[in-house]
């Protein structure tokens, strides 16, 4: 794959991972985790792993974000750290 793409997506991956763990609002954390999953999906599609990328697009960016949001709405939205 094109290494420039690879480099940019990997840097964004680290940034989104840190932000989704640092942000205090859990709803925002869930959404940024969805962004992280989608970036990961792009990376795998570039690495010729299309089946894995497809699964991650459906599961990681789609369903698991919905699960996290459902839990956040049923518990509390604020996080202390």
């Amino acid at each position: 794959m094109i290494w420039q793409f690879d480099l940019i997506i990997l840097v964004f991956l680290v940034i989104t991972a840190i932000i989704s763990l640092q942000v205090k609002d859990l709803l925002a954390a869930s959404m940024i985790y969805g962004v992280y999953s989608f970036l990961m999906c792009l990376l795998w599609a570039g690495m010729a792993a299309v089946d894995v990328a497809f699964t991650e697009a459906a599961v990681g960016a789609g369903v698991s974000s919905v699960f996290l949001i459902a839990t956040v709405f049923r518990t509390s939205r604020r996080s202390s750290d």
Binding site: L21, A29, S30, Y36, M40, W44, E56, S64, S79, D81
Partner: peptide
């Protein structure tokens, strides 16, 4: 992290890191 949802997001990030390694 103290928050349980944060812990689970961390667990998912850990999993995707291992998958990144394999791919």
């Amino acid at each position: 992290k103290n928050n349980m949802v944060k812990k689970l997001i961390g667990m998912s990030i850990f999993q995707t890191a291992i998958i990144l390694f394999y791919v």
